[in-house]
Each structure stands twice: as C-alpha cells, then as structure tokens.
Amino acid sequence: MSVIILLLGASLIVALFFLFAFIWSVKDGQYEDDFSPAHRMLFDDKTDNE
C-alpha cells in the first residue's frame, strides 16, 4: 500500500509544478495583453542588429 503514498507524493509534486507555472505566468504579465505577443512573433527581422 505504501507505493500509493509514494505515487501520491509524486503526483502532488507534478500538480504543484503546474500551480507555480500558472502563478509565474500571471506574474509575468502574460494575461495582460493578448494581442501583441501573438503578432510580434510574426514579424521577420530583416536586419540582425538586435
């Protein structure tokens, strides 16, 4: 039975990882602007002086 407890711990850790991923994405401002990032990635950089 103790293997279930082990699995439980593992699954909780995975779930916690997703929780922190969510918190990070909110903190990062990913939900602030839903237009610019989607369009920004479509622009080509003709010159590479970045």
Binding site: E32, D33, D34, F35, S36, H39, R40, F43, T47
Partner: peptide, 22 residues
C-alpha cells in the same frame, strides 16, 4: 506594433520599446 517596436532603428538612443496593445 511593429513600427513602434522598431523605434530603435529611427532613434539609435532607444534601446527597446514594448507595446501593450490592449
């Protein structure tokens, strides 16, 4: 969005422009 974020090409002193569209 594109024009503003490339402002550094017009004014070399500009390092970065980040547009929040909404």
């Amino acid at each position: 969005l594109w024009l503003l974020e490339n402002l550094h090409k017009v004014d070399a002193g500009v390092q970065q422009v980040n547009v929040n569209f909404s």
